[in-house]
Measured scan of single mutants.
Amino acid sequence: MQRVNMIMAESPGLITICLLGYLLSAECTVFLDHENANKILNRPKRYNSGKLEEFVQGNLERECMEEKCSFEEAREVFENTERTTEFWKQYVDGDQCESNPCLNGGSCKDDINSYECWCPFGFEGKNCELDVTCNIKNGRCEQFCKNSADNKVVCSCTEGYRLAENQKSCEPAVPFPCGRVSVSQTSKLTRAETVFPDVDYVNSTEAETILDNITQSTQSFNDFTRVVGGEDAKPGQFPWQVVLNGKVDAFCGGSIVNEKWIVTAAHCVETGVKITVVAGEHNIEETEHTEQKRNVIRIIPHHNYNAAINKYNHDIALLELDEPLVLNSYVTPICIADKEYTNIFLKFGSGYVSGWGRVFHKGRSALVLQYLRVPLVDRATCLRSTKFTIYNNMFCAGFHEGGRDSCQGDSGGPHVTEVEGTSFLTGIISWGEECAMKGKYGIYTKVSRYVNWIKEKTKLT
């Protein structure tokens, strides 16, 4: 034993070699072989497995989906700052455009905790909710729209109204504003409101030439003092309507412009014939205590009207009353817009006519005020429907199939267009061939041609 100890002390290297040989010859039971080890760690190889990531292109799944990435790591994937920024906006807080917040056709661009709407022409605001041009839906104005110097929408209202708090709607500024039905039992019968379409306001006024200088022999019209197929109006439903009495009662109609003036057809009036105007009328054979009678003290036909040349060209006249009318729910003026808007309103496509005229061709006159909704007829169809001249200051309205029309005794009465609950004068009943005849239409004086003249002559002093 002493000898062994001496050998170990003198030859430590020998001992180490012996131990190493023993270990190498022993069977290893701690580690699995290569094949079995792979069965336990069965993990798919990654895209760049075996390579240094710093030297390969980034992978979106590896960089940002398996674990949260930084902007720089995302930049490695896209290799483009702009594309990385677009991805980053949604990656950080989701897609803010998912709810489609942009209105009126706006395009949404996502941002971090926010979004941006790219608005089409005519709109602005956070969600493109603000109209900035009158060309689109009248700028959301209830009545009139004008573009300011910086191309912003400025709404306005006709006389007797003021802008509401929203700067879009119009509200009454006087007790009985024009064009409004205020009798409670008839307010439910107000005709369907007309909503502004998209309009090209630059070209809204037709490029028409008034044929002022045409000389033409007097034409022989049949029954051209021209509501057939209409309905009984309720008291106060058309408070701007008046009836004219002269040699015979209810020979023509008219509309209240203001307390002192009536507008009617020029062919209705004769110099030297006494005319009485009755406002607030409903049943011409009954006294309903809503009527107001006034005498006409002055007749002003349009300066281009000449019955000797043509009885229905420039067929418009103004009547001055001896005493002002007292405005109330049964006696209310009709609204008159400017030339541009009167023309736009007419193009809405349908209007209402009213009167006490004959209820059928050569038949009896109506006792109760009649009204009828009539569609506008395109000019080409209008011209083809008659052998008589249709001037540019006239328009056609009615039904091709016949059966409904204005008729004798309705002449001078109103053709009105309702705009968001307020009625505007767009025409004056003038003439036609018979009444409600198939293929024939009622012919009306186009008020847009005469609004400046009306307003100039009827100013209240």
Rank of each mutant, 00 (worst) to 15 (best):
C178S: 01
T186H: 10
K137D: 15
Q241L: 12
V326H: 13
N166H: 02
T194S: 12
R83Q: 14
N80T: 12
D378C: 03
T287F: 09
V374N: 02
I299L: 05
S406R: 12
L327N: 02
G122L: 04
Y91M: 15
P197Q: 11
M65I: 12
G349D: 13
T84P: 14
G351F: 01
E281S: 10
A279G: 03
I390H: 10
V199E: 13
P301Y: 09
G105L: 05
K293T: 13
E129I: 03
D232K: 12
Q241H: 11
E291D: 04
V174R: 10
T332N: 04
H289R: 07
D322E: 06
C128P: 02
E171T: 08
F71I: 14
M65T: 08
N138L: 09
E281I: 12
E434Y: 10
K89E: 04
L24P: 02
I262T: 01
L189P: 12
A397K: 02
V278I: 05
G272M: 03
S423K: 12
A9H: 08
L24W: 08
C134E: 02
A207H: 13
I443S: 03
P301C: 06
G179W: 00
V92H: 10
S148T: 15
S423D: 03
K362W: 04
T209K: 08
V199G: 11
C335Y: 02
G179M: 00
G230I: 13
Q57Y: 06
A37W: 04
E116L: 15
T190S: 11
K51L: 06
S11P: 08
K459E: 15
N80G: 12
T332Q: 04
M8E: 08
P375S: 15
E288N: 08
N283P: 04
Q90G: 14
K438L: 15
V377S: 03
Q90N: 15
E66R: 05
E270G: 07
K455D: 03
I112A: 15
G229R: 11
T29S: 11
V278S: 08
I334W: 00
R83Y: 09
V228K: 08
S107F: 06
V377T: 06
D410C: 10
C141Y: 00
V296N: 01
G106L: 02
G236Y: 04
S187I: 11
E418R: 09
T190M: 05
N104S: 05
E27P: 02
N213F: 05
N306M: 06
C119V: 00
P101Q: 05
I17F: 08
V243S: 08
E124Y: 13
Y22D: 01
R364V: 15
H34W: 08
C396W: 01
Q408V: 09
E434G: 09
R43M: 13
P375R: 13
Y161E: 00
E288H: 07
R62P: 12
V243G: 03
L321G: 00
S49L: 11
T445M: 14
G160N: 07
L319R: 00
T381F: 13
T209I: 11
L14Q: 03
V56R: 06
G122F: 03
D405Y: 13
N393H: 14
Y352D: 04
V368K: 11
R294G: 00
F360D: 13
C178Y: 00
L319M: 15
E159G: 08
T287H: 06
T158E: 05
A366L: 11
S430F: 04
E66S: 07
G357F: 11
V331Q: 01
D212H: 10
I214S: 13
N59F: 06
R180S: 04
F345L: 13
P333F: 00
P333G: 03
C145W: 02
V154L: 12
G58D: 13
E79S: 14
A207C: 05
Q237S: 06
I336L: 13
P235D: 04
N100T: 12
I300Y: 05
S406Y: 12
S114G: 15
A173R: 09
G413H: 14
L19Y: 05
H289T: 12
E142C: 02
R373A: 12
A266F: 02
L163H: 00
I297T: 03
I454L: 08
Y22I: 14
C178D: 00
N310Q: 08
A265Q: 03
N393F: 04
Y312E: 03
I443G: 03
N135Y: 05
I316P: 00
F221S: 11
M394D: 01
A279E: 00
L20V: 10
T445P: 00
V359M: 15
E35P: 12
P12A: 15
N5W: 10
H314G: 04
E67H: 15
M394W: 07
R43K: 14
T194D: 11
T84V: 05
T29A: 06
K293P: 04
E401D: 15
D198C: 06
N59L: 05
G421Y: 04
S187G: 10
T194W: 11
Y201D: 10
R404T: 12
E165G: 10
Q57A: 11
R3Q: 06
C252P: 00
L383N: 14
F78M: 15
N135Q: 09
K89V: 06
T190W: 11
A149G: 08
S406T: 13
E171P: 03
D249R: 02
S169P: 00
D223H: 09
L376T: 10
R180A: 04
L20C: 05
E142I: 04
K68G: 09
E79N: 09
V202S: 13
G280V: 01
V277W: 01
L14D: 01
T194L: 07
N59R: 09
K168G: 05
K45L: 10
H303V: 07
A37N: 05
E35N: 12
V353A: 08
H415C: 02
A250Q: 09
V242R: 00
R294P: 01
C102L: 00
A266H: 02
Q216I: 06
V4T: 12
S255A: 05
L372A: 13
Q216L: 11
W453H: 01
G432W: 05
W453P: 00
T209S: 14
G179T: 00
P375G: 14
E193W: 12
E401A: 13
T422L: 05
V77I: 06
L318W: 00
N452V: 07
V227K: 10
G179E: 00
S49C: 04
M437R: 10
F360I: 12
V92E: 15
H267S: 10
E208K: 10
G253T: 09
I336F: 05
T190A: 11
K168S: 04
C134A: 03
T287K: 06
N36I: 08
I454C: 01
E165D: 13
D232N: 14
D95G: 13
D131K: 08
G355Q: 13
T290I: 06
G398D: 03
T386F: 10
N393M: 03
C97A: 02
F395V: 02
I300K: 03
F238H: 03
R191Y: 10
R404H: 15
V248F: 08
T445H: 06
